[in-house]
Write a protein that binds this DNA or RNA. Structure first.
Length: 268
DNA sequence: AGCTCACCCTGGACGC
DNA sequence: TGCGTCCAGGGTGAGC
């Protein structure tokens, strides 16, 4: 499940795309393109001017207000492929470059999608700040949490609160900050919000350094798995000892999501 | 307005 | 062995 660190790793792998011209776009599944604000034909022959990430979204920039936005949902993969090979079973979209390379989008569960948009400001207007960017500050986070009764974990997963955190990193962040995932967000003390803020940045930064987490099927653009799964403290470790205190990791449901935490270090 | 929950989808795990 | 059932989760939107 590509979250911010995985999407960031894929983005780095797509840097060679910049400067290459689009030779063709092939849609293999009717529902995978969610929005077409311009005709795909308008970018044929045009070079990719840039590739950037916003939250869990990847954006290919074509200029003249033309962007291709990709979200990989749970099981989506975006990767370089040799032109001759048969597309894998759930390949839904292929971008061919004039240099003869293919960028393929594969997504068995089809929770992901592709949008051809002209205005990224508008497209992302409900998305919260980048957790590793300058607009995400301790003060703003504190104001966003106060008076909220929802579990703090639900807010970490809320993309309008902060962009890019999914279920794995929410659990890891709360463990690092030593905060129980079900704590009402508004009940956090200032010092706890401080720990949480620090943990968000540290966990995500470390995960990027490890090229993301390969839990089931995540691979980067060059088909390499990530390494952060070896660093997980709580996610999917229920019944195993906490690396900090040795108590057994528990799994509960918070906000409808499977949630892993240490009952020793994360008290309600 | 804030919050919870069902829904979409498929592969893999699990139980009988 | 094989079949059926359940579960995972990101984002959206309905309903309380």
């Amino acid at each position: 499940m590509p979250e911010l660190p995985e999407v960031e790793t894929i983005r780095k792998g797509l840097e060679p795309l910049v400067g290459q011209r689009v030779a063709g776009l092939t849609q293999l599944h009717p529902g995978i393109v969610k929005l077409r604000e311009f005709d795909a034909g308008e970018i044929i022959g045009k070079p990719v001017l840039g590739v950037y990430r916003r939250g869990k979204y990847l954006v290919l920039v074509f200029g003249e207000c033309r962007y291709m936005v990709v979200h990989m949902g749970m099981s989506g993969r975006l990767y370089w492929s040799t032109p001759g090979s048969e597309p894998a079973k759930h390949t839904h979209f292929i971008l061919k470059t004039e240099a003869g390379q293919q960028l393929r989008y594969e997504d068995p569960r089809r929770f992901g999608g592709i949008w051809f948009v002209r205005d990224t400001e508008k497209f992302f207007h409900l998305l919260g700040p980048e957790p590793l960017g300058p607009n995400f500050t301790l003060e703003e986070m504190y104001r966003g949490l106060e008076k909220r009764r929802a579990p703090v974990k639900s807010l970490l997963l809320d993309q309008s609160f902060v962009a890019g955190i999914g279920n794995i990193y929410a659990d890891e962040i709360l463990f690092a900050a030593q905060i129980h995932p079900a704590r009402p967000a508004g009940s956090l003390l200032k010092k706890e919000v401080k720990r949480l803020f620090k943990a968000i940045r540290e966990v995500l930064t470390r995960a990027i350094e490890h090229r993301g987490t390969t839990f089931r099927d995540y691979r980067d653009g060059d088909n390499h798995p990530g390494r952060f799964q070896d660093c997980l403290s709580v996610y999917s470790r229920d019944g195993k000892p906490c690396p900090r205190c040795g108590q057994l990791i528990k799994k509960i449901v918070v906000g409808g999501r499977g949630t892993h935490y240490c009952p020793g270090c994360q008290r309600l």
